[in-house]
């Protein structure tokens, strides 16, 4: 439920360190993007979780329909050959 006076919702993405991707970690309410970035810093990086934050208005995210889950994702169940399990990764490749 949202009320007229409630600030918009923002999704927060935090990058833990250089080279890693931004990971979704939660959401918060803020009046605008500047406030959202500051509050994301205050709410989600208090324990050194981050070196960079992204925020995006939740209503700007287009999501797949949960009702389409079967049609969308189940056909991949039996296609094990798509996994690159037959390759030996060099040790220097991290975070795959």
């Amino acid at each position: 439920m949202t009320t007229q006076n409630e600030w918009p919702l923002w999704e927060v993405f935090v990058r833990a360190k250089a080279g890693l991707d931004h990971k979704h970690c939660g959401s918060l309410h803020a009046a605008d993007s500047k406030m959202a970035i500051q509050l994301a810093r205050d709410v989600y990086t208090r324990r050194q979780e981050g070196t960079s934050v992204w925020v995006v208005r939740s209503d700007q995210i287009v999501a797949s329909d949960p009702g389409d889950k079967g049609m969308f994702f189940d056909p991949m169940e039996d296609k094990v050959y798509r996994h690159p399990t037959f390759y030996q990764l060099p040790e220097s490749v991290n975070h795959m």
């Binding site: 600030w7 918060l28 309410h29 803020a30 500051q38 509050l39 205050d42 709410v43 208090r46």
Partner: peptide, 11 residues
Amino acid sequence: PVLEEDIALTN
């Protein structure tokens, strides 16, 4: 006034 600012002030 709001939870997020509560945390910001406490920080």
